[in-house]
Nucleic acid binder design. Structure first.
Ligand code: ZN
Ligand code: ZN
Ligand code: ZN
Ligand code: ZN
Lengths: 180, 180
DNA sequence: GTAAATATGTTATAACATAACATTTCAATT
DNA sequence: AATTGAAATGTTATGTTATAACATATTTAC
């Protein structure tokens, strides 16, 4: 049986890898594997993936679009009354500390990490049309940044690379191809 | 007479150019040349650099540290009562449209553009110690980003590259050298 | 001068985030 | 199983950043 993941991957480059979600991919798999990975990592690290944290992570993974803290809050269902902002912000902080999500600075929003456990700075492709964001891992970008900074005598500790544009799914050429 | 600009420029790379402000540089020159450039560009483009816009631009240029909208607002001196947020946000929008300033997404703050008129995406080195930000123009970073995105079938329209770290002035090695 | 376009004033509110302190839950130790 | 200290969550209030909507004033073109 073929794998359920279906990503558009145009791998002309050997140093870059991308995962822009295809419109018809099996998203349930994205969610379940991300959740399982989180459970495993947290167990391994002896940190607690509590109900709230688990719920927030699952909500973040509801789509491949970065999601805002207050959207999460709206969908966080406590038994009784509505949760308050600190609840979700604390969960987000935990998840970022554990590398399970990334914050998209240019959107004030959060997205699941495609490869937690691997310590890395996120690089993102953000489609201004469909709103999806894909995490890029491109060594050449890292290398170019490292060199550019070094030439300025600057040591980079936390790079933010967020590339807004149009994804393959939303490109005019591809628009008519097939898609529903 | 030697030029009054004094920047730390370690030009090992031919494709990158940087301007991290030296601690003792003649900042009055930074301001006056930025203001003159703005006057010229606006005249050339037949857009109005009004009192408010001029004042906001000058405030942005008060330092090489990105500055928040409400800080600007606090220092915007109308004759009578205090200005309101839309006043400063409109001025910022104008200045960004004209390429005279950049917005630093990771700080929700604004900084003067070192080369307005040249249409470009900003790349920034932001010192987490002194707070200064320097605009980097590095073709290799642009190229690497373009290639990485292309490999993913993604067309970049608005790249955000903000590199937080420690600048040469604030590096421990350089700290004792001399500096006041 | 009149009209249209541009810029600013003004009021209100939306959207994003954290400080401070009380209470509960958890896990280790006795 | 009670004690206890640490970690997590609840709760209230407030801080910070940004925009919507509509009124007024200023500039420019005719
Ligand atoms: Zn998916
Ligand atoms: Zn990641
Ligand atoms: Zn610039
Ligand atoms: Zn510094």
């Amino acid at each position: 049986m073929a794998p359920s993941y279906r990503y558009t991957e145009t791998s002309k480059s050997s140093s870059a890898s991308t995962m822009f979600p295809d419109h018809e991919h099996d998203h349930g798999k994205c969610v379940s594997s991300a959740m399982q990975r989180a459970e495993d990592l947290c167990a391994e690290r002896s940190v607690r993936l509590t109900d709230i944290r688990r719920q927030v992570l699952e909500l973040v993974w509801q789509s491949h679009n970065p999601v805002g803290a207050y959207d999460l809050l709206d969908n966080l269902h406590g038994i009784g009354k509505r949760a308050q902002p600190p609840t979700v912000y604390r969960a987000l902080e935990f998840l970022m500390d554990q590398g399970l999500i990334h914050r998209i600075e240019s959107l004030n929003a959060y997205i699941g990490c495609r490869d937690p456990g691997e310590d890395h700075a996120g690089q993102f492709l953000i489609c201004r049309d469909c709103g999806a964001a894909a995490e890029l891992v491109d060594k050449r970008i890292d290398a170019a940044i490292g060199q550019g900074a070094k030439a300025a005598g600057f040591s980079v500790e936390h790079p933010t690379v967020e590339l807004e544009g149009v994804c393959a799914n939303c490109r005019p050429e591809h628009k008519g191809t097939k898609h529903g």
